[in-house]
Design a protein around this nucleic acid. Sequence first.
DNA 1: TTGCTTGCAAAGGGTTTGCATAGGA
DNA 2: TCCTATGCAAACCCTTTGCAAGCAA
Lengths: 147, 147
Amino acid sequence: VNETAAENVQMTHRRKVILDELIKDHSHPTADEIFHRVRKKLPRVSMGTVYRNLELLSKNGLIRTIESGSSRRYDADLHDHYHVRCVICGKIDDAPIEPNPELLLQMAEATDYDLTGHNVEFFGVCPSCKRNDDFKHQDNQEEQDNG
Amino acid sequence: VNETAAENVQMTHRRKVILDELIKDHSHPTADEIFHRVRKKLPRVSMGTVYRNLELLSKNGLIRTIESGSSRRYDADLHDHYHVRCVICGKIDDAPIEPNPELLLQMAEATDYDLTGHNVEFFGVCPSCKRNDDFKHQDNQEEQDNG
DNA sequence: TTGCTTGCAAAGGGTTTGCATAGGA
DNA sequence: TCCTATGCAAACCCTTTGCAAGCAA
């Protein structure tokens, strides 16, 4: 529609460093986590710059955002994929299954909306949190709640 | 697991009014919207009470939350269903398709997570925003961004 | 009495923004 | 030159929390 093509984003140095850090980082980091990584290379970078650039990159389709827990996360992997979130530690992983194109088609037929996409998020306990729970009793699991 | 059964929630008057308002309201309101509705019946209710009760109701499985845009939304419809969000006005509707149990099964086989559930959210332009865009030019659509 | 609930106001976390300066086409 | 990008700090929005008072079992 009115989205600027990726080529239209002028790559300032800060912008490129932020994007590159996100490309290297497959953990779906928050703005704050990206900020700390970027700061190692650009010690004077500010939080505002990180937020402004992440928003610009996302609006121009060079990265995508994940709205899930209390803070937004970012993902430079544009390949269509689903996510799974650990309800204990909050970690987000890529789901190891292919998106189902049927889902969108089925919905497109049933709704009056003009669809542009869909997100799928699974919830569960990640392997590492499962292991921890084997040692502890399964009492204190209320650190994170699923959505 | 360690979730209190719904019957274990003692229904204080405020709690009941909040729950009833949410049951009547199918628009997936935010805490603030619920607050304003409840306030018409209980003029001295406070925001803190609304948040505390919504959290308690949700932890006890009497309502569910929708984490989507910038603010959390609440839904008293516990029947398993998907949602669709308008990328223009931010409204959330129920998706008119049945959840696909295959999706969860397929994922359960492929992942090391112990799955507890999944959410599906579609994005698109709602009928009413489509109509508005016919009159305007399709320029100023940046009020809401999809996630 | 004892523990849960509430109003109020303040604090908190995450994100956005105004402004003056710096930098790039 | 002119427009965009940046650092900084303040503002903002949404949500949570401490506290003292109120209620209910």
